[in-house]
Write a protein that binds this DNA or RNA. Structure first.
Lengths: 220, 220
DNA sequence: TGTCCTGTGTCACTAAGTGACGTACTGTCG
DNA sequence: CGACAGTACGTCACTTAGTGACACAGGACA
């Protein structure tokens, strides 16, 4: 009976674990933003989230890494949209349609979380510790892009070309995220980014360029 | 005591500072490889390089970051070659010519350092702490690529397109480095990578693809 | 009900990293 | 040459990130 996954056992589900990590991350990010990373202790994070300090270290390997889940929230939407990209659609069409649909039906991630993510990325400019967290989050993005692109190109995820395309794709997503987040926090008119089709077009164009056109078109 | 030649002036020159950081990094990397990161203490690094532990923390903000300089040695050659890329040459031609010239005249970086760099990148697969160091080194690569590409395209280094191209370029350099390093450490025949023109061609092609052709051709 | 199993709290402990202060060396000005 | 200024380094006390060990609570399952 080892084969079937014990979904409802005494063991904490992965989903629940992720939710807890996200909750810790939220409080940590808030404190980081208010008092800086150096000015925030593990004890403070633990107290803010209502857990013992020991439990914090059971869920995160370091203080900086507490920021990773919330920082990932800045790209999970895009990632989940890419994961459902049908082979017969172009990148532009799919992104536009899905982002529009999400806007209508309500985004899966909290707006406050996205704000926190932007703040962390902003803070990463001056705090090397947070920069590592952001880069690690982008690294995980890249891993997922390998699966998505590998699947789309009909090649293994560890194929060299797939890895190259995934790395470039993750890189441009990161840069666009940094750019948009910085502009947003700087007070640029949100309407400028509110135009979903334009936003989708920019992401799609950047990804298409970064992969030399290998990722973007419909595939047979 | 290390008592390295501190010949010039009251203030330590940036070059001397970098040399010292590299020396510390070498010992740290060697210890990380032999005993793992967790199995290496700051005291051990200090003793190995002949400095006090306090001085180690004056030069590095954390234990993991001690690996950054040596890990950077894996890309400094390529970076320095790219920095001297004349506008009227194609990427392929310049890379081939320069890498050949370096091979003839003797490489600027120690072979042992490159081996250590590969080992660190390898170790980064299993040690998250080292992965952050590797990613931070790649991040610095990206900063330098912004200057190189911005200069070549005749646009400011913080231009969005320049940043996108730089990010993609740094990403493919990273992936190729990981790929070649892993193969090398796995015992693949070095002759396979010893073919400089072929290696240069692969890097050039990857960069050209990752920038949609914007980086690679001669410019007027 | 009793027995696993797992997540968490408590406490003692190791080690990463910092602050403060003293010292030795080096170049500079008189 | 000698006093001065600046900087890198050593020493030591100290804070805090992070771990190991063990006990306890609560839910699943017989």
């Amino acid at each position: 009976m080892v084969t079937a996954q014990r979904s409802t056992g005494g063991k904490m589900s992965d989903q629940r674990r992720e939710r807890l990590r996200l909750e810790i991350s939220r409080e940590a990010a808030r404190l980081f933003w208010e008092h800086g990373v150096a000015g925030t202790s593990g004890d403070q994070i633990a107290e803010a989230v209502g857990l013992s300090t020991r439990t914090i270290w059971r869920h995160f390997r370091s203080k900086e890494s507490c920021a990773e889940p919330i920082v990932m929230q800045g790209v999970v939407t895009l990632l989940s949209v890419l994961r459902t990209w049908p082979r017969e659609h172009s990148l532009e069409d799919h992104l536009t349609a899905e982002l529009n649909r999400l806007r209508r039906e309500g985004a899966p991630v909290d707006v406050a979380d996205e704000m926190l993510a932007m703040k962390m990325i902003r803070l990463a400019d001056s705090e090397p510790a947070l920069r590592t967290a952001w880069l690690m989050a982008c690294d995980r993005t890249e891993q997922q892009m390998r699966a998505i692109i590998g699947d789309r190109l009909g090649r293994p995820a560890d194929d060299l070309d797939v890895r190259l395309h995934a790395a470039s794709t993750a890189a441009v997503i990161r840069v666009l995220d940094e750019h948009i987040g910085a502009a947003y926090l700087a007070g640029t008119d949100p309407a400028e980014f509110g135009d979903l089709p334009e936003l989708a077009r920019r992401f799609a164009h950047a990804i298409r360029t970064a992969t030399g056109g290998a990722v973007g078109d419909p595939v047979a």
